[in-house]
Design a protein around this nucleic acid. Structure first.
Ligand SMILES: [Mn+2]
Ligand SMILES: [Mn+2]
Ligand SMILES: [Zn+2]
Ligand SMILES: [Zn+2]
Lengths: 158, 158
DNA sequence: TCCTTAATGGAAACAGTTTCCAATAATAAC
DNA sequence: GTTATTATTGGAAACTGTTTCCATTAAGGA
């Protein structure tokens, strides 16, 4: 399918082109889908949300593209313990705030939180500096997740 | 196989029994294997390390047991991005220190670190308290990982 | 020792992801 | 605009880590 409709979401074109990648209708659709939600979508999730409007974007392309976007840093990949990779935009079109996750080990629900994020980031910065010096390790990224039982699951089981 | 040889590692028997589980030769072998290393073993890794001495412990049992031990909190499961779950003892026989991880996204090597761990744990405690109150979420556990490029991979590629 | 029932191994099924390749479309060169 | 180059593509099939199934075995309490 020719790339006719560029739904106006061009904020990410630069980054993708800089990495030597081309702009295609499929990539457009995938990024739009991720930008339209705060959910943590699996590849299948993305596929089914796109498929109605773009029946000719295959699941393989979704996997390839998510991989490539993660490589480029535009998308973050997570494992919340339900057997599939889950993805979200690293940074939305409006530069939303970086956040961490609260994962319910019962129902697998995930809560984004930004509370205490300033303290956390401040500590992380210090830690990163120390670690990268001590281990000669270039740190690009970090992940913090808390695991436990969510409000609803707590109620359901004493 | 009858459970004849209890290589002296009984420190974990209590916890397993308390959860209503039985002590078996397979479980013995699996915990011994995890206790004998600081590596982050996959199920296959455990299997191949055990198989020479216990040819009659099947891979299925390894999966089941690791799962059960993770449930019981004796073992921690990690995803370092190489497509398989990796396991380590949450706490060794001598009560070793809790630690976090530095993951190389190039070669997938993992470094355990305990530097700054006190500051980290102190912040985590505060954060956990705040989060559990705000979201009515019982927090059991946390995970911190830093991602980047290790010393060796940095040298290999400008 | 016997009995109940959890635990087991191996084969087969499963599910998420990757590979393969011929066809197509995005960009660069003109 | 046209053409040439080369990345990207969809779909089928392969792959791989993990789970399920079920008949057999053995742990632990009586
Ligand atoms: Mn999130
Ligand atoms: Mn470790
Ligand atoms: Zn829950
Ligand atoms: Zn490395």
């Amino acid at each position: 399918m020719p790339c006719q409709k560029r739904c106006g979401s061009q904020w990410w074109h630069g980054k993708v082109k800089d990495c030597g990648y081309r702009i295609t209708a499929g990539r457009e659709a995938i990024i739009d889908t991720l930008a339209a939600t705060h959910d943590h979508l699996s590849a299948e999730d993305v596929y089914s949300r796109i498929h109605a409007r773009f029946p000719n974007v295959g699941l393989t392309t979704i996997y390839r593209t998510l991989d490539m976007l993660a490589q480029a840093g535009l998308v973050s990949r997570f494992d919340f313990g339900d057997g599939k990779s889950r993805y979200e935009l690293t940074q939305g079109p409006k530069g939303e705030h970086h956040h961490h996750h609260l994962v319910c080990t019962e129902c697998k629900r995930v809560i984004d939180y930004t509370d205490f994020i300033d303290d956390e980031l401040e500590l992380l910065r210090r830690t990163e500096k120390g670690l990268s010096q001590k281990y000669n390790f270039r740190i690009d990224n970090h992940m913090i997740q808390f695991y436990g039982v969510c409000k609803d699951c707590l109620r359901d089981q004493p």
